[in-house]
Design a protein around this nucleic acid. Structure first.
Length: 469
RNA sequence: GUCCCCAUCGUCUAGAGGCCUAGGACGCCAGCCUUUCACGUUGGUAACACGGGUUCGAAUCCCGUUGGGGACGCCA
């Protein structure tokens, strides 16, 4: 049977990196075995779910290239069905009304803890005569969980995990306001959607035991479970905003490529021999959730950067320029001129190997965007000493008479430095001031490549402006 | 506190009893390349948490210790 997986985020915040990996693994698993990958928004939480968060999740997934099959299911729209199941359980005697107050509940927990028992509901309304029910407040519906025996889950990642039923209390499935709880909703939705493999974060492992009880009570087939270890921050502690628990949109803003993120996330907790750069096609062919490691992985930006640099270099120049232009327009508020686009496109080869992310690429791309008069900073000025300017002044007539192809320019300047000036003067002695004069910077792509792209007229004009200052 | 899970270089991992003198990648260090910065390239640094077993033989199996993580809501 082809697997059906799903990603089921709750829209209470942005799509974070852990969620993205969960979605990736679900999708990969479904693709690998010819199944389908569904998306369900768990928006049963009253106030905390926001339309903005839903939007951020859908956008984030789409941007990452993690498209889903079929329509998005909104859990909130299925509340009626959830209630129906709760009532079925009630009529089967597998659920009951509970009138315990929040204060009572807190006491129970404190007491249990003090006595060294697992904290939880003590079952005080479990077998109570309904005639004793108070009339002044509504009841919540609790699941009548089995007290004896144990729950065994053959988790695809965690292996066989067992918990005694006595560790599990009677969970609320319908709140006193009549709204279904998450615990009920997931089970009903996963069942109704025909989900065969529940692949999700490790933090849900203990929920799986309770959910299993529910499946059994309804006499539904229990899906396969796979609980993925969580992603930790670089210091081993829980991901915090400081180190990566930022929205996926923040990665996008910093200039990470979807392909790089996919590759990086895939290698977090999973490996395929010595392979590091893994194409989507290979990932789809190789990935199996059963091969995911059980230990939590730390997030490492240095490795992500390295991977991103790789995908950046592999990317088509035109596509990269388009991304860059959008970014530049957004920050400067104005569109690039055709001449700037021409320079940028021509300069891509030299720019690409120098960048890790789109943000630093945009930074170094300034070389091709800046217009005269150039704004010389202290770094450039340092290279433009009177002596250096004198060298450049001597070079000017030679440049004017030269062809304008990069190799020709290079050999010209080399000859100027080593033969005309002195054998001890290296190319760099002239090339560095030249770079400073033409780009107002001390670093740039190879200066002769830059010169070729700018063209003779522009270069001479820049040189003149620089020398006349 | 109760329950569950985990443990190989700094990080991500390969490793399913002899192929391990523990492999790869990122990072870091050094050399080469070089007009700057990068790219590239060559080499180097660095790990089986600890203690007991089992076995002819253990990174691999078992137990314990320590250290991490997760879950214990009328949140999801």
């Amino acid at each position: 049977m082809a697997p059906v997986t799903r990603f089921a985020p709750s829209p209470t915040g942005f799509l974070h990196i852990g969620g993205a990996r969960t979605a990736l693994f679900n999708r990969l698993y479904a693709r690998r075995f010819g199944g389908s990958f569904r998306l369900r928004i768990e928006d049963t939480d009253r106030e905390r779910s926001t339309p903005e968060a839903i939007e951020a999740i859908l956008e984030g997934l789409t941007w990452l290239g993690l498209d889903w099959d079929g329509d998005v299911v909104f859990q909130s729209a299925r509340a009626e069905r959830h209630r129906e199941v709760a009532n079925t359980l009630l009529s089967k005697g597998l659920a009951y009304r509970c009138y315990a107050t929040p204060e009572e509940l807190a006491e129970m927990r404190a007491l249990a803890r003090a006595e060294g028992r697992p904290p939880g509901y003590d079952g005080r309304w479990r077998d109570r005569d309904p005639a004793e029910a108070p009339t002044d407040r509504p009841a919540a519906i609790r699941f009548k969980a089995p007290r004896e025996g144990e729950q065994v889950i053959e988790d695809l990642v965690q292996g066989s995990v067992t918990v005694a039923n006595r560790q599990l209390d009677d969970m609320v499935i319908l709140r006193s306001d009549g709204s279904p709880t998450y615990m009920l909703s997931v089970v009903v939705d996963d069942h109704d959607m025909g989900i065969t493999h529940v692949i999700r974060g490790d933090d849900h492992l203990t929920n799986a035991f309770r959910q299993r009880q529910l499946y059994q009570a309804m006499d539904w087939p229990v899906p396969h479970f796979a609980h993925l270890p969580l992603i930790h921050g670089p210091d081993g502690a829980k991901m915090s905003k400081r180190h990566g628990a930022i929205g996926i949109d923040a990665y996008r803003e910093q200039g990470y490529l979807p392909a790089a993120l996919r590759n990086y996330l895939l290698r977090l907790g999973w490996g395929h021999g010595d392979d590091e750069i893994i194409s989507d096609a290979d990932a789809q062919q190789w990935f199996d959730v059963a091969d995911v490691g059980k230990n939590p992985a730390r997030f490492d930006f240095a490795k992500l950067d390295n991977l991103n640099a790789h995908y950046l270099r592999e990317m088509d120049d035109q596509a990269l320029v388009a991304l860059l232009l959008a970014r530049i327009e957004q920050s400067s508020g104005s569109a690039a001129t055709p001449e700037q686009v021409r320079r940028l496109t021509a300069g891509m080869t030299g720019l690409k190997p120098r960048a890790k992310r789109l943000d630093d690429l945009a930074q170094s791309a300034q070389v091709y965007l800046a217009e005269r008069p150039l704004d010389y900073g202290s770094d450039a000025l340092k290279l433009l000493s009177p002596d250096a300017k004198a060298l450049l002044a001597g070079l000017r007539p030679l440049l004017e008479a030269s062809g304008w192809e990069r190799e020709e320019l290079e050999s010209l300047v080399r000859r100027y430095a080593e033969e005309i000036l002195s054998p001890s003067v290296k190319l760099g002695k002239v090339a560095q001031p030249l770079r400073a004069a033409l780009t107002a910077s001390k670093v740039s792509p190879p200066i002769f490549e830059v010169m070729e792209i700018f063209g003779r007229a522009e270069c001479l004009a820049r040189l003149d402006e620089c020398l006349s200052n």
